[in-house]
Design a protein around this nucleic acid. Sequence first.
DNA 1: CACCAATACGCAATCGATTGCATTTTAATT
DNA 2: AATTAAAATGCAATCGATTGCGTATTGGTG
Lengths: 383, 383
Amino acid sequence: MGNKKKAVTIHDLAQELNVSPSTVSRALNDHSSIGKQTKNAVKKLAKERGYRPNTIASSLRTNRSNTFGIMVSWINRPFISSLIAGIEEAARESGNRVIISQSHDHTELEKENLQALYDSRISALIVSLAMETVDYSHFDLFTRNGIPVVFVDRCPNRNDIHKVHINNFNAAFEATEHLISQGCQRIAHIGGGRHQSIYEDRRMGYIAALKKNNILVEEPLIIQATSLSAEEGMRLTEQLLDAPNPPDGIFCANDTSAVSAIRCAKRRGIKVPEELAVIGFNDDPICEIIDPPLSSIHHPAPEMGKAAVLQALAILAGNQETPSTSRVTLDTYVVARASSDRKKAKASNGPVGPVPAIEATAEKVSAAAGPAKTRRRSSRKDK
Amino acid sequence: MGNKKKAVTIHDLAQELNVSPSTVSRALNDHSSIGKQTKNAVKKLAKERGYRPNTIASSLRTNRSNTFGIMVSWINRPFISSLIAGIEEAARESGNRVIISQSHDHTELEKENLQALYDSRISALIVSLAMETVDYSHFDLFTRNGIPVVFVDRCPNRNDIHKVHINNFNAAFEATEHLISQGCQRIAHIGGGRHQSIYEDRRMGYIAALKKNNILVEEPLIIQATSLSAEEGMRLTEQLLDAPNPPDGIFCANDTSAVSAIRCAKRRGIKVPEELAVIGFNDDPICEIIDPPLSSIHHPAPEMGKAAVLQALAILAGNQETPSTSRVTLDTYVVARASSDRKKAKASNGPVGPVPAIEATAEKVSAAAGPAKTRRRSSRKDK
DNA sequence: CACCAATACGCAATCGATTGCATTTTAATT
DNA sequence: AATTAAAATGCAATCGATTGCGTATTGGTG
């Protein structure tokens, strides 16, 4: 029970084996200058005595903490938590710990908690910016001191950084073209704050798609939200539908607001997708739950997390002056579901029929370069 | 740009002020035996030079890491991510870091990652058990060495532990009585593995509610799931509905499976809640998205996280022999939504009308001791 | 057998902050 | 002014692992 004995150290092992602590240390680290027998003896005893290296002492001496810091807005959002899950896994596999911190989307808290992360002597930082953040100088603290900073998803709008992102322009372009291909003529866009490049890019992709298809770009149909929350999505959709000439399609910059758009339309007796097609962004779990199921852009969150870890490791490995920039762009694709499927919806417009099985609720439309293919989308795992 | 100068240490400050490092250290820690002027001088210079304490060195010396370890199944589940959000906040406010690890619901991974957390010299451990875990001996490592372990939600089935939980028996009892109050006569239960006490307790609460209301307890209506995933929920509901005498209500041990139950029923053309009332557990965001909105048990995830941190801090504060047990029980309540509202549903059985506004989709039925009150449920914030 | 080069290992400083125990300075008292 | 208690500060060890450099051991070769 309460045998709270002190932890075993290399000194203990050294003494017992009549060798020096240096030898024990080197033996455990498989240093080349230690004899095979000594190594084995040390390792054997270490196991017997339940020796566990003191990572803190090691960190102090080597000045390497083997800890990655994560700074995100809110942990409990589907995209973010999946991102973190990916980071945690990749970090652990490379022998690193992960410590997390939330900005709650406020720059002030971001700064404060960033300082705490710095004080923790993290070896690398992975960040998804707070919604508010437009000035990035608080990250200089890290870069100045040789601590790699890798931005994910919400990145600064500059080039001299390391980042893992998706091609928001293309994704939005394809989302919009998807609506167009379904026969939408007046497509609205509920976007995020334009100071965040991901939202600005989505907006530009949307506009480009309209132009390419010779559709008039109407400013009143382009709305800039501030939080993209459910409430805001509801309010902005109301506003759109109240207009004299309401849209017949909406591309929302996230799924939360897109779900609100659907609910708003349903409340008003407007049929989705027949009278209003909707597509969101992120492919959150709610997409498959809402009725009709919400089309969206699939955003590879865990993979982005892993990629960010790999980036950081690569920078750390190249001990020399860290290259000031690098980027990884991951693929997205349109997940076409009923909320935008006007063709099928018009074909069978009977009363509300039986709901299709889970496995058949979605199709995947490739969004990578090249012509859009259509494939089955496998059902989502419960995680 | 690249002025990667070495970090300022107390020695640097000491030298510049012509005092000893001890004095600087004490001054910064507001030690009583340091003169007021010296203190001010030290603090002033520390700020000027941008001194930041080396937490690693401090940890090594004091043997306190100020780091909490978290072990959960999957970070990216609504309940868990909210739990972590709460832990992170409370930990930060008390000057602690938080490092996280996932078990992916496997005992083996739980063990491995637990070892890594131990090696990180965490000051306390907060755990929600892997689904598989039935043997708890791998936690002895911590308790033996004076590291507080606080279990949350999925706890070991023993009394000599620290835990933060809800009263699963009562919650299940009230969920079941809620269905009964809605006129259900044959209520099924899709529960989790009985080796996990939270699921066993829910099962017992369900049975108790039936008995109290003189409803026959039928074994075929009580199903034990292994993962409570969407797929499994679908399969088990099929099974229930295929039976010669199908249930008119289902109480599911989580929302994921409850959503599947609803979808399964809809696919078969069975009306929810008129022919099958459904209630879940956790009050995940999907509850408000599914149609009809899913009734559930509200589970105060962030508060549980905060409570766990407070527990851990309390144990750490009482330096003496840690009391071997303590528990915090948080309140839950039934959130009654349309999936179980047979009375209202029967009153207005017209065609699918306009959907009510977000704010009006749910009522909250108090589940704490005392008679059940009914109140409005405020709309969920987007987090 | 002597000599040289690997090969194996030990010494001691180091990372930065903390802290028990002196030691010095200041202030108060007679 | 001498004495002493109190207040302020310094010394040096310590936490546990790492590592540059020096020393000892081993084995091979002429």
